[in-house]
Design a binder for these strands. Sequence first.
DNA 1: ACAGTAGTTATATAAAGTATAACAAATACC
DNA 2: GGTATTTGTTATACTTTATATAACTACTGT
Lengths: 102, 102
Amino acid sequence: MGKEHLGEFEELVLLLIVLLKDEAYGLALRHALKEHADRTVTIGAVHGTVNRLEKKGFIESNLGGASELRGGRRKRLFTITASGKKILEKSRDAKVTLWGKI
Amino acid sequence: MGKEHLGEFEELVLLLIVLLKDEAYGLALRHALKEHADRTVTIGAVHGTVNRLEKKGFIESNLGGASELRGGRRKRLFTITASGKKILEKSRDAKVTLWGKI
DNA sequence: ACAGTAGTTATATAAAGTATAACAAATACC
DNA sequence: GGTATTTGTTATACTTTATATAACTACTGT
């Protein structure tokens, strides 16, 4: 059974990928971390984490179009997988249950 | 402002210290991790984590009496501090808020 | 073609997570 | 009273997460 755990930052990023829907890519995630979680990190921190999440099978990525504005490389868009959803819920439930006992 | 974050295992241990009240020491925590969180770890893992938590000021420890049963060294009992409580609540609220937006 | 902008990859280091093994102190039993 | 046994903590080492800095890639406007 599930031997894998999400680190705390991994969990946060995974939640934000869900929240951002079809606009979940590196820089947008970095921005969302600031807005929704008051977490200021560098872009390298974000990419390192999504790479790990993808390797573990919790998210998938595919290249989207380039930016609508001027300039810019193509975006790498992330979406959560079934097992990603499962582990998010599991992690939430575990904590809710514990808080309930306190 | 709070620059420190709780790792996911740190948060779990901190919650269990609250739950165990005046019986929060190494081996009891290890047992509680199994019971309440289905997490099987070695005792070294637990002690490494509480040492970090104490260094960060989220818990305090003092030596309690020895075991009531036969044998045994004195227990090192842990209690959560005010800043420990604060960070636990902060971490919980942040996640609840995010889940709310999803 | 060059400068600027949007984005990702590569590399390196610190912090968190975890295990194995050693040590310490108390008790029981012969 | 010494030795084996139980309860517990410390020391040490290693792996995985978390994070930063810097380099690279690709597109766009002039």
